[in-house]
């Protein structure tokens, strides 16, 4: 079972990983310890591998800093489910191979700290008696996730999504 860490709307990348705690400032090794360090200090201490973030609208807005989703990945976050994602955050997280799903109902009806089970392949989030089908991402997104990120995708295919083989 995974635990849900629930967040509200417009959580920006300065909340996920403040610029003052960037690898540039403090070194790369401490990155996971600094996730949500001021916004939700208990997060980095208590998060377990496989836990899930559930958020409101526009999750990850603001800076293009990839170390924000990287910090969540280093913490072992298995997936992020939000009502919507900020564009650059979505792409950065996808590039790192973090599964992302959009859902209106799951994010409203599942409580913070609730134990859930997520089937990433099927796109189903189960919380107690309830099963929430998650909107499947577009095919190219699924393929990037399947490979584990854009670097792995590119190394395997030798091309970008949307690029012909020739």
């Amino acid at each position: 079972m995974a635990k849900v860490w629930k967040f509200g709307n417009d959580v920006d990348t300065d909340q996920i990983l403040p610029g003052r705690y960037a690898p540039y400032m403090t070194g790369e090794a401490a990155l996971a310890r600094h996730a949500f360090i001021e916004y939700r200090p208990e997060f980095a201490r208590a998060v377990r591998a496989g836990d899930i973030i559930l958020a409101g609208r526009n999750f990850g807005c603001g800076s293009s800093r990839e170390y924000a989703p990287l910090a969540l990945k280093r913490c072992g976050i298995a997936a992020i489910v939000a009502r919507s994602f900020a564009r650059i955050f979505f792409r950065n997280a996808l590039n790192l191979g973090i599964p992302l799903f959009e859902s209106e109902t799951a994010t409203q009806e599942i409580a913070d700290g609730q134990e859930v089970e997520l089937d990433v392949a099927q796109g189903i989030l189960v919380a107690g008696e309830r099963a929430f089908p998650l909107r499947p991402p577009p095919a190219f997104v699924c393929e990037i996730l399947h490979q584990g990120g854009i670097v792995e995708y590119y190394r395997k295919h030798g091309r970008f999504p949307g690029e012909s083989d020739s």
Binding site: S63, S64, E66, I88, R91, N92, N95, L96, Y154
Partner: peptide, 30 residues
């Protein structure tokens, strides 16, 4: 640009956009 305010370049009619580390590295490579 590896910075979200790369949208600034639109002021002269360029399509400027911000991306993260991995996308910038891929653009450096290709």
């Amino acid at each position: 640009g590896s910075d979200s305010h790369a949208t600034t370049y639109g002021a002269i009619g360029a399509f400027g956009t911000g991306m993260g580390t991995t996308d910038i590295a891929l653009a450096f490579a290709r």
